[in-house]
Protein backbone atom coordinates (compact mmCIF):
# COMPACT_ATOMS: atom_id res chain seq x y z
CA UNK A 1 0.00 0.00 0.00
CA UNK A 2 1.37 3.38 -0.93
CA UNK A 3 -0.82 5.01 1.70
CA UNK A 4 -2.81 3.56 4.53
CA UNK A 5 -4.49 4.93 7.59
CA UNK A 6 -5.06 3.25 10.88
CA UNK A 7 -8.18 4.12 12.90
CA UNK A 8 -8.02 7.65 11.55
CA UNK A 9 -10.40 9.89 13.47
CA UNK A 10 -11.05 13.60 13.13
CA UNK A 11 -13.33 15.56 15.38
CA UNK A 12 -14.44 19.16 15.02
CA UNK A 13 -15.73 19.92 18.50
CA UNK A 14 -18.54 17.44 19.17
CA UNK A 15 -18.88 16.44 15.53
CA UNK A 16 -17.01 13.39 14.30
CA UNK A 17 -15.96 14.01 10.71
CA UNK A 18 -13.95 10.78 10.41
CA UNK A 19 -14.53 7.73 12.54
CA UNK A 20 -11.76 5.10 12.69
CA UNK A 21 -11.06 5.08 8.98
CA UNK A 22 -8.70 2.34 7.79
CA UNK A 23 -7.91 3.40 4.26
CA UNK A 24 -5.73 1.24 2.05
CA UNK A 25 -4.60 2.66 -1.27
CA UNK A 26 -2.66 0.25 -3.48
CA UNK A 27 0.27 1.56 -5.49
CA UNK A 28 -0.44 2.80 -9.04
CA UNK A 29 -4.20 2.61 -8.70
CA UNK A 30 -6.86 5.21 -9.31
CA UNK A 31 -8.72 5.18 -6.01
CA UNK A 32 -12.20 6.68 -6.10
CA UNK A 33 -13.48 8.05 -2.83
CA UNK A 34 -17.25 8.39 -2.92
CA UNK A 35 -19.79 9.44 -0.38
CA UNK A 36 -22.64 11.87 0.15
CA UNK A 37 -22.10 15.51 1.13
CA UNK A 38 -20.63 15.76 4.61
CA UNK A 39 -19.38 12.17 4.56
CA UNK A 40 -15.85 13.34 5.37
CA UNK A 41 -14.19 13.04 1.97
CA UNK A 42 -12.53 16.47 1.99
CA UNK A 43 -11.43 16.05 5.61
CA UNK A 44 -9.86 12.69 4.78
CA UNK A 45 -8.10 14.07 1.69
CA UNK A 46 -6.88 17.11 3.64
CA UNK A 47 -5.36 14.87 6.31
CA UNK A 48 -3.72 12.72 3.63
CA UNK A 49 -2.39 15.91 2.01
CA UNK A 50 -0.91 17.06 5.34
CA UNK A 51 -3.14 20.10 5.56
CA UNK A 52 -4.98 18.93 8.68
CA UNK A 53 -4.01 16.81 11.64
CA UNK A 54 -6.05 13.81 12.75
CA UNK A 55 -7.52 13.82 16.25
CA UNK A 56 -6.32 10.23 16.61
CA UNK A 57 -5.06 7.44 14.41
CA UNK A 58 -2.14 7.36 12.03
CA UNK A 59 -1.36 7.96 8.38
CA UNK A 60 1.29 5.71 6.87
CA UNK A 61 2.94 7.01 3.72
CA UNK A 62 5.29 4.97 1.61
CA UNK A 63 6.57 8.06 -0.20
CA UNK A 64 7.69 11.43 1.08
CA UNK A 65 5.04 14.12 1.34
CA UNK A 66 7.08 16.06 -1.22
CA UNK A 67 6.05 13.52 -3.82
CA UNK A 68 2.37 14.30 -3.25
CA UNK A 69 0.26 16.92 -4.96
CA UNK A 70 -3.23 17.96 -4.09
CA UNK A 71 -5.92 19.77 -6.01
CA UNK A 72 -8.79 21.19 -3.93
CA UNK A 73 -12.41 21.13 -5.06
CA UNK A 74 -12.65 24.86 -5.86
CA UNK A 75 -9.09 25.79 -6.80
CA UNK A 76 -7.93 29.38 -6.91
CA UNK A 77 -4.67 30.81 -8.17
CA UNK A 78 -2.93 34.15 -8.30
CA UNK A 79 -5.18 35.88 -10.84
CA UNK A 80 -2.30 37.77 -12.42
CA UNK A 81 -0.37 34.69 -13.56
CA UNK A 82 -0.69 33.14 -17.01
CA UNK A 83 -1.32 29.36 -17.32
CA UNK A 84 2.27 28.56 -18.43
CA UNK A 85 3.66 30.61 -15.55
CA UNK A 86 1.41 28.78 -13.10
CA UNK A 87 2.39 25.34 -14.35
CA UNK A 88 6.06 26.28 -14.29
CA UNK A 89 5.69 27.59 -10.73
CA UNK A 90 3.83 24.46 -9.65
CA UNK A 91 6.54 22.20 -11.01
CA UNK A 92 9.37 24.25 -9.54
CA UNK A 93 7.80 24.45 -6.09
CA UNK A 94 7.60 20.67 -6.07
CA UNK A 95 11.20 20.36 -7.22
CA UNK A 96 10.45 19.31 -10.81
CA UNK A 97 10.80 22.31 -13.11
CA UNK A 98 8.96 21.37 -16.29
CA UNK A 99 10.23 22.11 -19.77
CA UNK A 100 8.32 24.57 -21.94
CA UNK A 101 7.21 21.65 -24.14
CA UNK A 102 5.83 19.76 -21.15
CA UNK A 103 3.91 22.84 -20.03
CA UNK A 104 2.36 23.43 -23.42
CA UNK A 105 1.52 19.75 -23.95
CA UNK A 106 -0.28 19.64 -20.61
CA UNK A 107 -2.17 22.85 -21.36
CA UNK A 108 -3.16 21.39 -24.70
CA UNK A 109 -4.41 18.21 -23.03
CA UNK A 110 -6.36 20.32 -20.55
CA UNK A 111 -8.05 22.16 -23.41
CA UNK A 112 -6.35 25.44 -22.56
CA UNK A 113 -4.05 25.78 -25.55
CA UNK A 114 -5.93 28.86 -26.76
CA UNK A 115 -5.65 30.62 -23.41
CA UNK A 116 -1.92 30.55 -22.76
CA UNK A 117 -1.57 34.32 -22.93
CA UNK A 118 -4.58 35.10 -20.77
CA UNK A 119 -4.30 35.68 -17.04
CA UNK A 120 -5.97 33.00 -14.96
CA UNK A 121 -8.07 35.56 -13.08
CA UNK A 122 -10.27 35.83 -16.17
CA UNK A 123 -10.87 32.08 -16.42
CA UNK A 124 -14.26 30.47 -15.91
CA UNK A 125 -14.59 28.00 -13.05
CA UNK A 126 -14.37 25.10 -15.46
CA UNK A 127 -11.19 26.43 -17.04
CA UNK A 128 -9.69 27.02 -13.59
CA UNK A 129 -10.52 23.46 -12.61
CA UNK A 130 -8.86 22.02 -15.71
CA UNK A 131 -5.85 24.26 -15.08
CA UNK A 132 -5.73 23.03 -11.49
CA UNK A 133 -5.58 19.40 -12.57
CA UNK A 134 -2.81 20.26 -15.03
CA UNK A 135 -0.94 22.18 -12.30
CA UNK A 136 -1.21 19.14 -10.04
CA UNK A 137 0.05 16.68 -12.62
CA UNK A 138 2.90 18.87 -13.88
CA UNK A 139 4.76 18.32 -10.61
CA UNK A 140 5.06 14.63 -11.55
CA UNK A 141 3.99 13.49 -8.08
CA UNK A 142 3.84 9.87 -7.02
CA UNK A 143 0.52 10.44 -5.32
CA UNK A 144 -2.10 12.79 -6.74
CA UNK A 145 -5.06 13.84 -4.62
CA UNK A 146 -7.97 15.30 -6.56
CA UNK A 147 -10.95 16.55 -4.58
CA UNK A 148 -14.00 16.76 -6.82
CA UNK A 149 -12.00 17.74 -9.92
CA UNK A 150 -15.05 17.64 -12.20
CA UNK A 151 -17.49 19.52 -10.01
CA UNK A 152 -17.68 22.66 -12.16
CA UNK A 153 -17.20 21.20 -15.59
CA UNK A 154 -19.44 20.92 -18.61
CA UNK A 155 -19.60 17.48 -20.33
CA UNK A 156 -16.70 18.28 -22.68
CA UNK A 157 -14.56 19.63 -19.84
CA UNK A 158 -15.40 16.57 -17.76
CA UNK A 159 -14.15 14.26 -20.50
CA UNK A 160 -10.89 16.25 -20.77
CA UNK A 161 -10.28 16.18 -17.03
CA UNK A 162 -11.13 12.48 -16.74
CA UNK A 163 -8.66 11.79 -19.54
CA UNK A 164 -6.04 13.76 -17.59
CA UNK A 165 -6.87 11.76 -14.47
CA UNK A 166 -6.65 8.50 -16.36
CA UNK A 167 -3.28 9.52 -17.79
CA UNK A 168 -2.05 10.57 -14.35
CA UNK A 169 -3.02 7.10 -13.12
CA UNK A 170 -0.58 5.55 -15.58
CA UNK A 171 2.43 6.98 -13.75
CA UNK A 172 1.08 7.92 -10.31
CA UNK A 173 -1.31 6.76 -7.66
CA UNK A 174 -4.44 8.89 -7.88
CA UNK A 175 -6.91 9.40 -5.05
CA UNK A 176 -9.96 10.97 -6.55
CA UNK A 177 -13.19 12.04 -4.88
CA UNK A 178 -16.36 12.80 -6.75
CA UNK A 179 -20.08 13.11 -6.37
CA UNK A 180 -20.50 11.95 -9.94
CA UNK A 181 -20.32 8.21 -9.57
CA UNK A 182 -20.27 7.64 -13.32
CA UNK A 183 -16.96 9.55 -13.37
CA UNK A 184 -15.54 7.36 -10.62
CA UNK A 185 -16.71 4.25 -12.43
CA UNK A 186 -15.11 5.53 -15.60
CA UNK A 187 -11.58 6.11 -14.31
CA UNK A 188 -11.16 4.32 -10.97
CA UNK A 189 -10.13 0.73 -10.41
CA UNK A 190 -10.46 0.83 -6.63
CA UNK A 191 -13.20 2.51 -4.62
CA UNK A 192 -13.80 3.52 -1.03
CA UNK A 193 -17.27 4.44 0.17
CA UNK A 194 -17.49 6.93 3.01
CA UNK A 195 -20.73 7.54 4.87
CA UNK A 196 -21.03 9.59 8.06
CA UNK A 197 -17.28 9.58 8.48
CA UNK A 198 -17.00 5.79 8.30
CA UNK A 199 -15.42 3.84 5.48
CA UNK A 200 -18.16 1.31 4.80
CA UNK A 201 -16.48 -0.35 1.85
CA UNK A 202 -13.22 -0.36 -0.05
CA UNK A 203 -11.77 -2.63 -2.66
CA UNK A 204 -11.60 -3.22 -6.39
CA UNK A 205 -14.45 -1.63 -8.31
CA UNK A 206 -15.14 -4.83 -10.25
CA UNK A 207 -15.63 -6.76 -7.03
CA UNK A 208 -17.95 -4.16 -5.60
CA UNK A 209 -20.10 -4.09 -8.70
CA UNK A 210 -20.23 -7.88 -8.85
CA UNK A 211 -21.11 -8.08 -5.18
CA UNK A 212 -24.07 -5.82 -5.62
CA UNK A 213 -25.08 -6.97 -9.06
CA UNK A 214 -28.62 -8.29 -9.34
CA UNK A 215 -29.53 -11.01 -11.89
CA UNK A 216 -31.73 -8.83 -14.05
CA UNK A 217 -32.35 -9.09 -17.81
CA UNK A 218 -34.04 -6.72 -20.20
CA UNK A 219 -35.80 -8.58 -22.98
CA UNK A 220 -37.08 -6.97 -26.14
CA UNK A 221 -39.79 -8.87 -28.03
CA UNK A 222 -41.52 -8.20 -31.33
CA UNK A 223 -44.94 -7.69 -29.68
CA UNK A 224 -47.07 -8.11 -26.55
CA UNK A 225 -44.45 -7.79 -23.83
CA UNK A 226 -47.23 -7.84 -21.23
CA UNK A 227 -48.38 -11.39 -22.05
CA UNK A 228 -44.78 -12.64 -22.04
CA UNK A 229 -44.20 -10.98 -18.67
CA UNK A 230 -47.34 -12.64 -17.34
CA UNK A 231 -46.07 -16.04 -18.50
CA UNK A 232 -42.83 -15.52 -16.57
CA UNK A 233 -44.52 -14.74 -13.25
CA UNK A 234 -45.48 -18.40 -12.86
CA UNK A 235 -41.86 -19.59 -13.02
CA UNK A 236 -40.14 -20.48 -9.74
CA UNK A 237 -36.76 -18.96 -10.58
CA UNK A 238 -38.34 -15.59 -11.47
CA UNK A 239 -38.69 -13.11 -8.62
CA UNK A 240 -40.13 -10.29 -10.71
CA UNK A 241 -41.37 -9.94 -14.27
CA UNK A 242 -42.61 -6.57 -15.48
CA UNK A 243 -43.43 -5.16 -18.91
CA UNK A 244 -41.56 -1.86 -19.08
CA UNK A 245 -42.99 -0.94 -22.49
CA UNK A 246 -45.12 -2.41 -25.28
CA UNK A 247 -42.19 -4.52 -26.48
CA UNK A 248 -39.80 -4.62 -23.51
CA UNK A 249 -39.87 -6.48 -20.25
CA UNK A 250 -37.61 -6.73 -17.23
CA UNK A 251 -37.01 -10.08 -15.62
CA UNK A 252 -35.33 -10.50 -12.25
CA UNK A 253 -34.22 -14.01 -11.31
CA UNK A 254 -33.35 -15.75 -8.06
CA UNK A 255 -29.83 -16.24 -9.40
CA UNK A 256 -27.88 -15.60 -12.54
CA UNK A 257 -27.34 -19.32 -13.08
CA UNK A 258 -31.03 -20.13 -12.89
CA UNK A 259 -31.85 -17.43 -15.38
CA UNK A 260 -29.10 -18.47 -17.75
CA UNK A 261 -30.47 -22.01 -17.72
CA UNK A 262 -34.16 -21.15 -17.96
CA UNK A 263 -34.49 -17.85 -19.82
CA UNK A 264 -34.29 -19.12 -23.41
CA UNK A 265 -36.67 -22.05 -22.76
CA UNK A 266 -39.18 -19.84 -20.97
CA UNK A 267 -39.21 -17.36 -23.81
CA UNK A 268 -39.74 -20.21 -26.27
CA UNK A 269 -42.57 -21.61 -24.14
CA UNK A 270 -44.20 -18.15 -24.04
CA UNK A 271 -44.00 -18.13 -27.88
CA UNK A 272 -42.17 -14.82 -27.70
CA UNK A 273 -40.50 -13.46 -30.85
CA UNK A 274 -37.24 -12.32 -29.28
CA UNK A 275 -35.43 -9.25 -30.62
CA UNK A 276 -32.74 -8.98 -27.92
CA UNK A 277 -31.76 -10.16 -24.45
CA UNK A 278 -29.48 -7.93 -22.37
CA UNK A 279 -28.20 -8.56 -18.86
CA UNK A 280 -28.63 -5.41 -16.78
CA UNK A 281 -25.17 -4.20 -15.74
CA UNK A 282 -24.79 -2.82 -12.26
CA UNK A 283 -23.52 0.77 -12.04
CA UNK A 284 -21.77 2.44 -9.18
CA UNK A 285 -24.67 4.77 -8.59
CA UNK A 286 -27.15 1.99 -7.91
CA UNK A 287 -24.55 0.15 -5.84
CA UNK A 288 -23.84 3.30 -3.87
CA UNK A 289 -27.52 3.90 -3.21
CA UNK A 290 -27.97 0.29 -2.17
CA UNK A 291 -24.95 0.45 0.15
CA UNK A 292 -25.91 3.66 1.85
CA UNK A 293 -29.57 2.65 2.13
CA UNK A 294 -29.23 -0.88 3.52
CA UNK A 295 -26.58 -3.30 4.75
CA UNK A 296 -24.71 -5.06 1.92
CA UNK A 297 -25.86 -8.54 0.98
CA UNK A 298 -24.14 -11.41 2.72
CA UNK A 299 -21.63 -13.50 0.81
CA UNK A 300 -24.14 -16.35 0.18
CA UNK A 301 -26.32 -13.89 -1.70
CA UNK A 302 -23.55 -12.97 -4.06
CA UNK A 303 -24.86 -13.58 -7.55
CA UNK A 304 -22.72 -15.10 -10.25
CA UNK A 305 -23.45 -12.51 -12.92
CA UNK A 306 -20.33 -10.92 -14.33
CA UNK A 307 -19.72 -7.24 -13.58
CA UNK A 308 -19.84 -4.84 -16.49
CA UNK A 309 -16.40 -3.83 -17.64
CA UNK A 310 -15.56 -0.20 -17.22
CA UNK A 311 -15.79 2.10 -20.18
Amino acid sequence: MIVSTNALTKQYGDRTALDHVDLEVPERCVYGLVGPNGAGKTTLLSILGGLRQPTSGTVNLKVSRQRWAMCPDAPTFEPWLTPPELLDLSGRLAGHPPSSDEVHTLLDEAGLADSVKRRVGGFSRGMTQRLAVAATIVARPEVVILDEPCSALDPAGRVEVLDLVRRAGESSTVIFSSHVLADVQRVCDTVGVLADGRLIHQGPLEGLLARFARPVWTVEVRRSAESVAAAFTALQWVTESVATGPTTLRIEATSAGAAERGLAGALHAARARVVSIMPESPDLESVFLAMTAAPPPSERDVPDVPARSRG
Partner: peptide, 10 residues
Protein backbone atom coordinates in the same frame (compact mmCIF):
# COMPACT_ATOMS: atom_id res chain seq x y z
CA UNK B 1 -7.65 28.25 1.83
CA UNK B 2 -7.74 26.87 -1.71
CA UNK B 3 -4.76 29.02 -2.72
CA UNK B 4 -3.02 27.99 0.50
CA UNK B 5 -3.63 24.36 -0.48
CA UNK B 6 -1.88 24.94 -3.80
CA UNK B 7 1.23 26.38 -2.13
CA UNK B 8 1.37 24.31 1.03
CA UNK B 9 1.08 20.94 -0.71
CA UNK B 10 4.00 21.76 -2.96
Amino acid sequence: PTLATFYRTR
